[in-house]
Nucleic acid binder design. Structure first.
Lengths: 195, 195, 195, 195
DNA sequence: CATGAATGAGCCTTCATTCAT
DNA sequence: GATGAATGAAGGCTCATTCAT
């Protein structure tokens, strides 16, 4: 009969919240945002529809939080390959990471790409996209220049396109064999095989 | 007085039909299929809601026809670069074509990509995607092998990814400067500048 | 090139009109008034939708004309058994006629019965129903009294119910065997077998 | 404060559900299924349109449930006259019951009869109709044979038709006087007056 | 904190009816 | 007369959101 401590309350809240976020990510990614209903998420997450609105202001708010928090939860992981000093090793890590990321976080990637394609996409999406360009690109460039890779800027543009192409191809076809084939082609091309 | 000739009816039909298809393509591409209502299409096309159903069986049918007929209308244009005998010239044409295609048919490309990302995408989308892989790839390979380009298969995989990456980047950011930059990087890379 | 004579016009009109009425009766009877569209009738009748409104003011008007003209076209036929002098022979004729009428004019009977059941049924329906009671019943009564049939009034009420029951049972089940069985039971009951 | 108990929810549900079923029966019976809109039912029942779909999957489902549950609610009542050992008493009860049933459950009877007349009537209707024939008829026959009523089979066919005729006449005309007249004629005919 | 009944706007679709030709 | 394109009201249904309990 003793009242549950506020700590325990917080824990329960966190668990429910995460459950909702995870379920929403899965469903948004699989079926699309518009084709996923709040009822469906609630049922799948094992909570009531009303409770959803205790955690999130609206369906749009839920989407925002889903993206924001999923991005955040991958933060450390996401850029770890940047810490690699050797440029070629970094490329290798980036390729391997991207492949892994696509395979394990398919729904998230589908969701992000889909939203990015919409004219009036959420500001968050634009922010995430611009970060990739504005933060990552310069870092790459410096590192590749330092490594004496010729025409580094051009290569980076191409590399960026390749990685995005890799993603959209895999997300569209779910063809893992093709994914690996392209990844290996890249490694060969940049002589990353023996690292 | 005299009854309308069937030719005249046909003409009227063609006009209205085209207006609907064009409007639908634009809106589907801009806002997504699910976020575009029939009312919206009708209003934008300047016709009544009901007329839609005089030409298309359902919203799904409209989507199908939009894609099918847009693809068809680009048919000749679409693969013209394949007729280029010289492999490097072909690459150049392909790049230029892709850039042009992305810029002039933005909505169509957004629509196609979005639909491709959906788990249960329309059969047409799958068909279009598979055609690209199964028909184009072998043709490229032969031509590039003939041209004595080393590691042709690898290059093709990479090229394919680059083109898709180019597309998704442009469709997402609408950044034409970036588009040209990547295109130029590609041309430089494959020494296509002087052709 | 000579203009069609007005007589021929009238003939054509009459043919088209009858075609519409017949088709409408069939469809109204089979699928119900509400479930039959003007388009369906026009297509089935082989004319254009617009032409329909050249012959009938509205769908309701068409219904009215369908009933009115179908009733009319059966008029002579309909009451011919009343002219039979002998009461028992008249009963026999009435039974046989009813059976025949149900089998050959199924749609009409279904339509009429259905409409009769609706609270706000067309005045015509009410008129037809009341005619049956107010005109036929007395005639029967006189004849049966004259024939010395005991308790004639009671018998008439029962007979009326039996005939309507026969109808609704057949129209509901389409079971011809049952129809004949009841008809024969009636004939046996009133000793009409040897006439 | 405290969450609503499931018992209370159940109670609320039952109230709303019944309100819908009752209203639907009334309107379907009065105006016909096709002429009754969900909006109309909702307005009449004092609920919102959407709530309907919280209880019934579709308009068709509602119809099915209306019929099924109305039949069920009359179950005991419905066949009680069969338990009467004496054949003539049974007939008397059946007549009285039918009259009562027609008067108190007019809408239900209208609805059932109307649906039965439709070519593609709901399976439930067919089931109900066939039950009447396949279950009731044999029971009657046995009882009347036991009672030594001559020509029992014929009489039953006639009786069945009479009862159905009684129904359709009353449902069509709403003429209670006529209903009683036919009922009394029947009682006289089978000498049921002194029971 | 939690539930799900209830709402109502908005969606896709049908169809009687009109009208330019 | 004849056609069928065009209209718009209305119908069935879904779903984000609110709220009594």
């Amino acid at each position: 009969m003793s009242p549950i401590s506020s700590v325990e309350f917080e824990k329960k809240r966190a668990v429910s919240r995460k459950k909702i976020i995870d379920t929403a990510l899965m469903l948004f990614g699989s079926n699309g945002f518009a084709n996923t209903s709040i009822s469906q998420i609630a049922k799948e997450a094992g909570i009531s529809k009303g409770l959803m609105y205790n955690y999130f202001e609206s369906k749009d708010d839920l989407l925002e939080k889903v993206i924001l928090e999923t991005v955040e939860s991958m933060q450390g992981f996401y850029l770890e390959f940047l810490e690699e000093a050797d440029a070629r090793k970094m490329l290798l890590k980036m390729i391997d990471f991207t492949v892994e990321f696509l395979k394990t976080e398919k729904e998230f990637n589908v969701l992000l790409t889909s939203l990015g394609l919409q004219k009036e996409s959420h500001p968050i999406i634009k922010k995430i996209a611009s970060e990739k360009i504005n933060q990552l690109m310069p870092l790459f460039l410096t590192k590749m220049n330092d490594a004496g890779i010729p025409d580094a800027e051009n290569e980076i543009y191409i590399m960026g396109a390749v990685m995005d192409g890799l993603a959209v191809q895999y997300l569209t076809t779910e063809d893992e064999v093709h994914l690996m084939r392209v990844a290996n082609a890249l490694k060969k091309r940049y002589n990353l095989g023996n690292l």
